[in-house]
Design a binder for these strands. Structure first.
Lengths: 109, 109
DNA sequence: AATATTAATCGTAATATTGCAATATAATAA
DNA sequence: TTATTATATTGCAATATTACGATTAATATT
């Protein structure tokens, strides 16, 4: 039905999935890469850099803000975005714990 | 329109997003965690372990197979699934490269 | 005050995703 | 052959996502 049955999963599973889901769009990857690249805030040039319409970028930014991956500071008529370093570290740990779930052996049938 | 404009992004951005998208559902996280936990193949018990209907699990398995994250071996009437270790390593590197994009400084407006 | 600039929000269309009942398929067992 | 068992596929309903034009809100500039 388009609705995920979150209630049958653990909080950890839901959190990992939620973070991965937000990273599951190339525009949001591009936004984050750009923020890391220029190493400071972006004030509005994202629309040109990414190549999607302004409302679309705004929507992607909103999703990144919802998970607190980025912060936005209002500067007059502009809003400057930057990575939330603390949150990014958290996400890194969370995903690394999952990604490091290597099986030692590879016994497969 | 529900359609991602993949053509305006780099192959790397699209690949990262595609992998993240597949990891963006708690059922698929749960399936992978279970496969790592038992450290060998799963033959059919996933429906009971996860708690979703059989066709739903089958669909999630299909998505994981599409990205070659898991392999399925037919064993009589059963199919045994296991992690594709090589692919998992690739995914780990891919995501780690992205996750390690720390900015040194935190100059924010 | 009037106008320009920037970003958010609203509304909408097109498509994708989630979940499951029903059914199909394939292999084994009786 | 005829069940039985296990998994895949189909079809569908409900909801979510993506994208963008139009509009709004807020501040700057003239």
């Amino acid at each position: 039905m388009g609705v995920t049955k979150s209630e049958i999963f653990t909080p950890e599973q839901n959190t990992i999935a939620k973070v991965a889901k937000v990273l599951g769009h190339p525009a949001r990857i591009a936004i984050l890469q750009h923020l890391f690249k220029i190493n400071t805030c972006v004030c509005g040039d994202l629309v040109e850099v990414i190549g999607l319409a302004q409302p679309t970028i705004s929507q992607h930014l909103k999703e990144l803000k919802n998970l607190e991956i980025i912060k936005g500071n209002i500067e007059g008529t502009r809003v400057c975005y930057c990575i939330n370093q603390e949150k990014w570290s958290e996400i890194k740990s969370l995903l690394n714990t999952f990604l490091n779930l290597d099986s030692k052996s590879n016994i497969c049938c």
